[in-house]
Structure formats: structure tokens, C-alpha cells
Design a protein around this nucleic acid. Structure first.
Length: 441
DNA sequence: CTAGATGATTTGGT
DNA sequence: ACCAAATCATCTAG
């Protein structure tokens, strides 16, 4: 601590002991051109420097005072000012711009998103809070699964904050120290406040680069932790039976347009009590994303091999048919999640058997001002009915039955089309994929 | 242990 | 932002 003042005094002392006002000469011209007198001086100076640590603080203060009261001091100061004025300009050209630094911003964003640098402890980070909320809602398995992760994350957070604080403190300490030093020195040599400012900013820059390293390594640690504990792909859990049934029910009852709307997805997620896990795309509610994933997979896989899903389709079709019948007999039809837009593009169906039914649906959809909800439900029932019809029309070996089954519905539609259509009209016998199933319910 | 099932991600297109 | 398709990585039944 007290090294600095003493050092400073020694410096000024040296200046006085040498040639006042000619310090430049002294530094550069010590080559011995001037003889022994100067050498003698240098020897003295070195001696002073060597013994400087032995001097007491009081002595140093006394020297300082003496210096400040020296009669030549103002003159010396002026000379220094002049010299500086001439030389400082060249230094002034240094660049001052401070770019926002994309790298740092990225790190900050990630740390914030990860809950490391966000809201301080005392309730946990955002991620932890989210996980806790999710586990409270649905799965107890969730909290158990994440507890380890959360513990490690909070550990990282703590280390991060500790280090950050340490750096900050060190930075402040060092800054004040330097500022004091410069201010003190400014009594004996010209130092403008601007220069002090500049020095401070340099110091801050240095320290912030250290901070950036800290942030970077923290980010790395979080990433590793994440990949170890939270990568949903790694820790994939199958949905439980009930959830799958609900999703399948919806899928097969909207087979002509199995694209649930945002609300429908939310409702499905709620009904399925799908557990929320950490998800990469934060823009969309994670539960909905899971539902979307499910539908995406289901659509593609169904389309790829319709035959394989025949049985399943029949089962759910029959079930929803029963449900629909019950519901309509009771007069309430808010049974399944509603899809306001599900009936929108079903018009291109070319069902030979139930064409009239379809026309009804279409007209109902087209002109009624409140038709959205009703139309959706009717559409859903139509989907179901098609299955049932195809099933129950089995008086002739299911030949016609298979024809009117869902692949056509897929084919005729804009986005939900161009399926392989194993059982399309081309083959009078059974389709390539053994489409026929023996379930006669 | 293996093959198929399945949830999630990536890629490329609109 | 959403989708289809391909692909990955795990789960599960045998």
C-alpha cells in the first residue's frame, strides 16, 4: 500500500536531484559525454533508489513537503506543462471508440437466458423457477430429474457471481488506487482530468476482458451441463398412454386436416398434462412444441405407411364416433378440442358415398356466420363417420370400404396429400400394404 | 442385444 | 412461423 507514495516521492526527488527542467536530457544523454559529475549524480540517485525502501513514511512525507515547498517547484511545473503540451498531442490520437462487442453481448444474452446472470438468487433463476413451476403442475419426476441440474446450475451461478464480484471489487480498488496516485502526482507533474479518465477507461477495458473470459467459461460450463442433463433428445421420455390416446383421438378425428391450431395445441397439451422440459426454442410454449412435434411425427409417419396405422385409425374412429353420438344425443358437443380452421380445406373430397353429407358440411361452413365451431365439429364427425362407414360397410369383403378410407382424404387435400395411397382406387384387391384389418368393431 | 417405436432436432422450403 | 422430410438418440418389447 505505502509503496506507491514512497516510490512517487523518490521519483520526484530524483528529478530534483538531477537537472531540474532537463529531465529529457538526463534520460537520453547519460552516455557519459558530460563527464564524471553526472556519473556522480547518477550514483547518488541510484543510492537513493536503493535505500528508498528503508525510509520511513514520515521521512517520505517530509521530503514530499519539502519538494512541494521548493522555490523552484512552480517553475519546474510550468516547464513540464510546456513540454507535455508539445508531446501529448501525438498520444491523443489513440482511438477512443468502444464497439458494443457482439461477442460479449451474445455471452450476456445467453447467461441471462440461462438464468445465470439474471435475477439474483433468492427464489432461483428463471430457468429453475420455470422448471419448478412445471414440475408443480404435472410431474413429480420432473423435479427429481432436474434437481441435480438445478443444483449444479446454481453452483455455477454462485461461482460466477462470486468471481464477478471479486473482479469488480478488484477493478474498483485498482481504479481508485490509480486515480489517487495520479491525482497525487498531478501536484508535481501536469495530469489533466481527461487523462485520468482515459486511464480509468483503459483499466476498465482490461478488467472487462477478464470478465469476458469469466463469462465465456461460465457459458461453456452451462453448455456442458445442459448437454449432460437437459438435452431432451438424450433424456427422451415417451408420453404416457393417456396422452397418446388423447393425441391420437384428435389426430384421427381430424384426419382430413390434422393441423391443430395454436389454441387446440394448448388445449391438447393441457389435457395430456404433457410435462414441460427445457426446450431450445423459447419463442413457443414448450408444451405446444411437444404437441407440434407429435403431430409432425404422426403426420409424416402416418403418411409414409398408412397401412400400418389402419388398425389404430379404425379404433380411434370408432371410439370418437361413439363419443360423438353420445354427445349429440345429450345435446352437448364441446367434446374434443376445437379447431376453428380444421374444416376449411375439406371441400375437395370426392367421396362417392357420403358426398351429400359433405355438401351439407360445406354449405354449413360456407355461409353460416357462426359456423366455425359447428363446422369444425361436424367436420370432425364426418372424419369419424367415414371410418365407421368404411368399417361397417363390410358386406362385400371390404373392397369398397378400403377405397373410401382416409388415404383419399389425404390425397384430395392441398397440404395433406400425395400419400403413397396403398389402397387407392387403382387396385381392386387389397392394397400393397395389406391395408385390410380384421377388426370389425 | 436387436429391431422397431418414438420424441426431438436439423434442414430446406414456403 | 410452420411444415415435410430426414435424421438422431433414446426407449421398449421380444
Amino acid at each position: 500500500m505505502d509503496d506507491q507514495p514512497r516510490l512517487m516521492h523518490s521519483h520526484t526527488g530524483v528529478g530534483m536531484a538531477g537537472h531540474p527542467g532537463l529531465s529529457q536530457h538526463m534520460q537520453e544523454g547519460t552516455g557519459g559525454t558530460d563527464g564524471d559529475g553526472r556519473k556522480q549524480d547518477i550514483g547518488d540517485i541510484l543510492q537513493q533508489i536503493m535505500t528508498i525502501t528503508d525510509q520511513s513514511l514520515d521521512e517520505a512525507q517530509a521530503r514530499k513537503h519539502a519538494l512541494n515547498c521548493h522555490r523552484m517547484k512552480p517553475a519546474l511545473f510550468n516547464v513540464l506543462c510546456e513540454i507535455k503540451e508539445k508531446t501529448v498531442l501525438s498520444i491523443r490520437g489513440a482511438q477512443e471508440e468502444e464497439p458494443p462487442d457482439a461477442q460479449l453481448m451474445r455471452l450476456d444474452n445467453m447467461l441471462l437466458a440461462e438464468g445465470v446472470s439474471g435475477p439474483e438468487k433468492g427464489g432461483g433463476s428463471a430457468a429453475a423457477a420455470a422448471a419448478a413451476a412445471a414440475s408443480g403442475g404435472a410431474g413429480a419426476d420432473n423435479s427429481a430429474e432436474h434437481s441435480d441440474y438445478r443444483a449444479k446450475l446454481s453452483q455455477i451461478r454462485q461461482i460466477y457471481h462470486t468471481e464477478l464480484e471479486k473482479y469488480e471489487q478488484a477493478c474498483n480498488e485498482f481504479t481508485t488506487h490509480v486515480m489517487n496516485l495520479l491525482r497525487e502526482q498531478s501536484r508535481t507533474r501536469p495530469i489533466s482530468p481527461k487523462e485520468i479518465e482515459r486511464m480509468v477507461s483503459i483499466i476498465h477495458r482490461k478488467f472487462s476482458s477478464i470478465q469476458m473470459q469469466l463469462k465465456q467459461s461460465t457459458c461453456e460450463a452451462v453448455m456442458i451441463l445442459r448437454s449432460r442433463f437437459l438435452d431432451a433428445r438424450r433424456k427422451r421420455r415417451n408420453f404416457n398412454k393417456q396422452a397418446t390416446e388423447i393425441l391420437n383421438e384428435y389426430f384421427y378425428s381430424h384426419l382430413s386436416n390434422p393441423y391443430p391450431s395454436e389454441e387446440a395445441k394448448e388445449e391438447l397439451a393441457k389435457k395430456c398434462a404433457i410435462t414441460v422440459s427445457q426446450v431450445h426454442h423459447r419463442t413457443v410454449p414448450p408444451t405446444c412444441r411437444k404437441v407440434s412435434n407429435w403431430f409432425g411425427n404422426k403426420r409424416i409417419r402416418y403418411k409414409k405407411n398408412i397401412g400400418k396405422f389402419q388398425e389404430e385409425a379404425n379404433m380411434y374412429a370408432a371410439r370418437t364416433a361413439v363419443n360423438a353420438a353420445n354427445a349429440s344425443s345429450h345435446g352437448s358437443q364441446a367434446n374434443s378440442p376445437s379447431t376453428p380452421n380444421s374444416a376449411g380445406s375439406a371441400g375437395s373430397f370426392n367421396m362417392s358415398n357420403s358426398g351429400d353429407l359433405f355438401m351439407n358440411v360445406q354449405s354449413l361452413n360456407g355461409d353460416s356466420y357462426q359456423g366455425a365451431q359447428v363446422g369444425a365439429n361436424v367436420q370432425s364427425q364426418v372424419d369419424t363417420l367415414r371410418h365407421v362407414i368404411s368399417q361397417t360397410g363390410g358386406y362385400s369383403d371390404g373392397l369398397t370400404a378400403n377405397q373410401m378410407y382416409s388415404p383419399q382424404g389425404i390425397n384430395a387435400n392441398g397440404g395433406w396429400q400425395d400419400a403413397p395411397t396403398p389402397s387407392s382406387v387403382t387396385s381392386p384387391t387389397e392394397g400393397p400394404g395389406s391395408v385390410h384389418s380384421d377388426t370389425s368393431n
